[in-house]
Design a protein around this nucleic acid. Structure first.
Length: 212
DNA sequence: AACTCGGGGCA
DNA sequence: TGCCCAGAGTT
């Protein structure tokens, strides 16, 4: 790990942790199953929408077995307010039934098994592997990819390359929080189109957009 | 690699 | 109104 990268990580830890909400206070999930379902629902949606939904959904169906016996209409009713709710209702119901029938109700701990579940791609699989099972993988979405490149943590073209680059410089125990903080930072401050550089707490270590 | 899904929030 | 979005699946 280079000295510069290590210093940047420590700095990010400090300022982003102060600015954005603690992930453990925002998305409280009591099991790998709830983390998996919430992450599937979160794709292309906002955290606030997902928090509202999961409150009622997990009260009715806290685990795979109880969600597996719901009707599709019931599941759809819970998730009606988020993007792609029809597809996601089918996906989380089908995934719950696979878990209940083939995995004894437990969430598998390998990428291959996770990505076989409907609605689960590489990013969602990594969130579960890192967040629920503490495996050394880095979830990278468009925000993490964009912000990491802007602030000079890496210089990569796609998320797979970013994943590999970040794994070399992010301490394992900070992967989950790092993903959360960079995601929020990219969503609300370091936006794709009009980044709010004047209001950015990270600008002193950032060369964007001057030297992009 | 490009395209589709798909409805709400916000400028 | 138009533009954008805590990706995944298909072609």
């Amino acid at each position: 790990m280079s000295q510069t990268a290590k210093q940047k990580i420590e700095f990010l830890r400090e300022v982003l942790g102060a600015r954005y909400p603690d992930p453990k206070s925002e998305l409280v999930f009591h099991s790998p199953f709830q983390l998996l379902i919430a992450t599937i629902l979160a794709a292309q949606s906002t955290d606030r929408q997902v928090n509202i939904i999961t409150g009622e959904l997990f009260k009715a169906a806290p685990d795979a077995e109880s969600m597996a016996v719901l009707d599709l209409e019931a599941v759809t009713g819970y998730v009606r307010t988020i993007n792609y709710f029809n597809t996601k209702a089918k996906n989380i119901l089908a995934a719950s039934r696979i878990l209940a029938e083939e995995y004894n109700g437990k969430v598998p701990e390998t990428r291959e098994a996770l990505e076989r579940l409907p609605g689960v791609g590489r990013k969602t699989a990594n969130v579960v592997l890192a967040g629920a099972f503490r495996q050394p993988v880095m979830p990278v979405d468009t925000h993490v990819h964009r912000v990491s490149n802007r602030i000079g943590l890496c210089r990569t073209r796609n998320v797979e390359e970013t994943e590999a680059a970040l794994m070399k410089i992010i301490p394992e125990e900070w992967v989950v929080d790092f993903h959360h903080y960079l995601l929020l930072h990219g969503r609300y401050t370091c936006k794709a189109k009009k980044p709010a550089c004047a209001d950015c707490p990270v600008r002193e270590i950032c060369a964007y957009p001057e030297k992009q």
